[in-house]
Amino acid sequence: MYFGAVFMLYALGLSLESQQGFNEAVEMLETSFFAKLIAWGLVSALLYHFFAGIKHLVMDFGYCEELESGQLAAKVTMGVSVVAILLAGVWIW
């Protein structure tokens, strides 16, 4: 994610640069398989980190810290992330 942010900033910069840059960024994400793959990879990492981070914050508040509830929370995090990542893939393609 840290190194992938290069692509995110590049796409943001390109899309905000001019009408032409915006068209280029859109075309890239609509036609290039490689661009889609990078976008999906980045969004996948972000989504997993997003849900795992929420779980972390929940645990900071003292919930789901026992073995049983902790394992359940970990499984829920994985499950929700997988679903979100698949939905993101559908959105991107």
Binding site: Y2, F3, A5, L9, L12, G13, L16, E17
Partner: peptide, 15 residues
Amino acid sequence: LTFIYVVWGIQILWG
């Protein structure tokens, strides 16, 4: 790299 991101990001936002 973090410093580059910050400067680059500000340039994009204010450009």
